[in-house]
């Protein structure tokens, strides 16, 4: 395990270009939407006493959810794509540990993206005379954590079971309902159908948890628990799959 830990800084460095690209993408897509940030959402979710906070959190969460598959997709299939599996996986290392380290590096980078995006949105918001959207540093990390736990776990499982092209398709399958859940009014039947993905609830739970609102923690714990279970299955499947290079 120590050799995998020693490799971790390099795994982070691998994810950095994608993280930077993801940050740019998030900012690009968020900037026009932020003008309407204070309108909130039709289901009435709104952080108490912070107008606009809920919608900003949801926007950032939505866009993180869109970038998470991009970062998570390469955890398993990236090794297959590079074809370096026979060299890497014949080393004296734990295979689930190796894949977990790659997954964790993605989370650290995604949390970094969340923090950077949050800081820039706050700066822009305040520069325009606003009071700030209220998505704190801790809130950003929390959002990154819950999004990554859920989306990253599912994508890792898909990536372990399927091959490259299918993993990307699977990632989109996750991302699109997540986007629907986070962006459409809940009166929309599509959004209602997509609510099985509890991204917004998780975001709310993360924020409430950080604010010390104990009752909402159960949502986070439940969804987090499911996410960890999916992650465990994904790591198990990934470590037991026959090696097969993808051209």
């Amino acid at each position: 395990m120590s050799s995998i830990a020693a490799l971790f800084p390099r795994l982070l460095r691998d994810k950095l270009p994608r993280s930077i690209a993801a940050t740019g993408l998030v900012l690009l897509l968020t900037s026009p939407l932020l003008r309407f940030g204070e309108s909130g959402f039709a289901d009435g979710y709104m952080a108490q006493g912070v107008p606009g906070a809920a919608s900003t959190a949801n926007l950032v969460g939505l866009l993180l959810a869109l970038t998470a598959p991009w970062l998570a997709e390469g955890v398993v299939s990236g090794v297959r794509r590079s074809g370096s599996g026979p060299l890497l996986l014949t080393r004296p290392i734990s295979r689930p540990g190796f894949y977990f380290a790659r997954w964790l590096a993605g989370f650290v980078c995604l949390a970094g993206v969340a923090i950077v995006v949050s800081a820039i949105i706050n700066l822009v918001w305040r520069a325009n005379g606003g009071a700030g959207p209220g998505l704190s540093l801790a809130g950003s990390i929390g959002a990154g954590l819950v999004i990554w736990l859920w989306v990253g776990s599912i994508v890792l499982l898909l990536s372990a079971v399927l091959e490259r092209g299918e993993a990307l398709a699977g990632a989109l399958l996750v991302a699109i309902p997540v986007a629907l859940t986070a962006s459409l009014p809940t009166t929309d039947p599509l959004a209602a159908a997509a609510r099985i993905l509890p991204v917004r609830q998780m975001l709310g739970a993360a924020r409430a948890l950080l604010a010390g609102d104990v009752p909402v923690q159960s949502t986070l714990v439940t969804t987090g628990g499911w996410s960890l279970a999916i992650l465990g299955v994904g790591l198990f499947v990934a470590s037991r799959r026959d090696w097969q290079a993808v051209d």
Partner: peptide, 8 residues
Amino acid sequence: VRLAILDG
């Protein structure tokens, strides 16, 4: 270098 790290 990466393979050497994984080798311990």
